[in-house]
């Protein structure tokens, strides 16, 4: 076994262990985990099919993004802190990749479809990156895709004001051209680290 393969397997085990050990909302069901004959965990099912509307109003599914790597972030536009920070970092990571970044489609899926209609998303995504795709949908469609990605989100009303905020998981997922989740990046991953991880995946 080549050294890089061994490291790769070790890394995969660590990633799986980290995922498995996460907070209660990230429930990995037994039937989501694929093991090989020796009991080695080879994949964890995260992601899958979705049906949503993009920021131009087009109906899309996961199939529309196959063939390219995809960086997926779940957020909302009425979010002054975490979402702009994360989207700014994604844009920086793509800049750092230069021409290689064309192999990656950045996507933000809204967990606040009530406010984030396609026109609202269209104005928002253009602030961060020219190729950033905004996706929204019905409450049910959003719940389905969030469940598939193990995203927790919850509306929080403030009794003092007539507005609401959203609690939400802030992972960034990297999907390969086949649509499989190959990496999971936590909030605060520096853009350079994001870029080098994407570069490694592009090469493999």
């Amino acid at each position: 076994m080549k050294k890089s393969t061994r490291i790769g397997i070790l890394l995969a085990i660590v990633v799986v262990a980290v995922i498995a050990g996460m907070a209660q909302w990230l429930v990995i069901r037994n039937d989501d985990i694929t093991q090989n004959a020796n009991g080695l965990v080879t994949s964890v099912e995260i992601g899958g099919p979705f049906s949503l509307t993009d920021h131009t109003g087009r109906q899309v599914t996961e199939k529309d993004y196959l063939g390219n790597f995809t960086l997926v972030f779940f957020g909302y536009t009425f979010c002054p802190d975490i979402c702009p920070t994360e989207l700014g970092d994604i844009a920086l990571a793509l800049d750092e990749l230069g021409d290689l970044s064309l192999a990656v489609t950045p996507v933000m899926i809204s967990i606040d479809p009530e406010r984030d209609t396609p026109p609202v998303l269209a104005e928002y995504v253009s602030l961060f990156h020219e190729r950033l795709v905004g996706l929204t949908g019905t409450a049910e469609q959003i719940k389905d895709v969030a469940d598939a990605y193990r995203i927790f989100f919850r509306r929080v009303d403030d009794p003092d004001y007539s507005y609401y905020l959203m609690d939400h998981t802030s992972f960034v997922y990297l999907l390969n051209p086949e649509g499989d989740v190959v990496s999971l990046l936590r909030y605060g991953t520096p853009p350079e680290e994001m870029a080098s991880l994407i570069r490694r995946q592009l090469r493999s």
């Binding site: 996460m22 907070a23 909302w25 990230l26 979010c79 002054p80 802190d81 975490i82 927790f152 929080v156 403030d158 003092d160 905020l165 609690d167 939400h168 998981t169 802030s170 992972f171 936590r186 909030y187």
Partner: peptide
């Protein structure tokens, strides 16, 4: 407001 990191869930609170 402040952003609270609860595991990997981000919460914003007054």
């Amino acid at each position: 407001h402040t952003t609270i990191r609860d595991g990997d869930v981000m919460k914003m609170r007054p």
